[in-house]
Each structure stands twice: as structure tokens, then as C-alpha cells.
Amino acid sequence: MGDLLSSIIPNVVARAPQFWKACQETFQMVGIVGLLSVFIGIPFGVLLFTTKPGGILQNRPIYFVLNKICDIFRSIPFILLAMILLGLSRLVMGTAIGVKGAIIPLTFATVPFLGRQIEGALAEVSEGLVEAAQAMGCSPWEIVWRVYLKEATPGIARGVTITLVSLINFTAIAGAIGAGGLGNFAIQYGHQKSLPDIMWTVLLLIVVMVSLVQAIGNAVVKKTTH
């Protein structure tokens, strides 16, 4: 097995420790930021949707602010967003490089992205269901939990899947500006040192990760759609 790998991807095997470290860093970034964006992005999307004029918690100022935040952060290309957030990252995390340094820019990129996906998913819930719940005496927060979030589960799963896939993409870009991870590994060795087997191994690994995330997402969607 070891011999076989050394003959197919000699340069990866030769740099096995760096390779494993890069894998770990990518998993850490996707894991931590994935969780953060779910925990911040879903409430963000819920607020974005429900504070809209005509929504069950309508509130013009809050909606205006959230909507603008979403538009602004979604329109900044990630590589520039990461650069302008270096200062904030240093302030909050104590560093602007490595996995720790990547968390803030990645979170700022994925939360508004997921927020919009959640907004769209909740919009798919029929107004009739909300009216029925109101007629049954549900409070706005009960409607959020028991109607919107519950009934939009397939749409939310789809949104989270798309967000995780873009997050994997963003981590590779973050690698280019000092975040480490597989992106950095591929750029440093595959690209700059022209070692094609490293480039292809990383690509293959990323494709496998994305496919896995997508497959899990699809399974959740299927299971929650009736």
C-alpha cells in the first residue's frame, strides 16, 4: 500500500506530515466555521425573514440593518473581505494567520450567505400554515419554531449544504493569504513548486469532501420531505 502510494503520489508521501496538518486545518476551519455559521446564520436568516414588512415580527429598522449587512458582505469578494478583516481578526482572535486567523473572515462570509438561503427557505412555507397557527393561538416565536423552522427543514438543509460547499471553497482561498489548510498546501507545493501530484491529490480530496457534504445534505432533505 505504502509502496503503491509512493509510486503514484511520491511528493505527497514525502510531505506526509505537512499534508496531514493541512487536512486537519481544513477540517478545523470547515468544522468550526460551519457550526458558527449555522448557529449565527440561521437566526440571522430567521430575523431577516420575519422582520421584513408584513412578516410576523415586522420591524423596519432591524430589517433595514440586517438586509444591508447581508448585501454588503455578500458583494465583497472573499479575498478582499479576508484582507479588510485582518485587523478585526487580530483584535478578537489575537492573530490574523492560521486557522485561528481565518475564523472571523470565513464567518463573515458564510453567515450572510446562509442568512439569505434561510430567508429563501422560510419564504417557501405557505402563508396558510402561519395563519392556521395564529388562529390556534400561537405566539410569533412559537410560529418561528413550530411552523417556519419545522416546515422549512428541507429548505434549510439545502441552504446549509450549499453554504458548507462554499465554505470549503473559501477555506482554499483563505489558504492563499496565510490560513493554512489544503488550499495553502496545494498553492505552496502543487503550484509554486510545480508538483502536479500534490495539486491533484488536494483537488481529489476537496471533490470528495464536497460530494460527501452534498450527499449528506441530500439525504437530510429526502428524509425531511413528506
Binding site: 405557505s126 396558510g128 400554515l129 395563519e131 392556521a132 395564529q134 388562529a135 390556534m136 393561538g137 400561537c138 405566539s139 411552523v147 419545522k150 416546515e151 427543514t153 425531511t224 413528506h226
Partner: peptide
């Protein structure tokens, strides 16, 4: 609002398009 929600529990409603929760 709060009392109104309690009162609504004694006033039920059915609809043209049924409005059942599809995920339940």
C-alpha cells in the same frame, strides 16, 4: 395580544386549502 392568543384557542378555524403541516 397575550390574552387574545388564549382566547383564540377556543375559536377554531378550518380553511379552504386545509392548511395542514406537511412535515407532520
Amino acid at each position: 395580544e397575550r390574552e387574545l392568543r388564549q382566547a383564540r384557542k377556543k375559536i377554531s378555524m378550518i380553511f379552504q386549502l386545509f392548511n395542514l403541516m406537511p412535515s407532520r
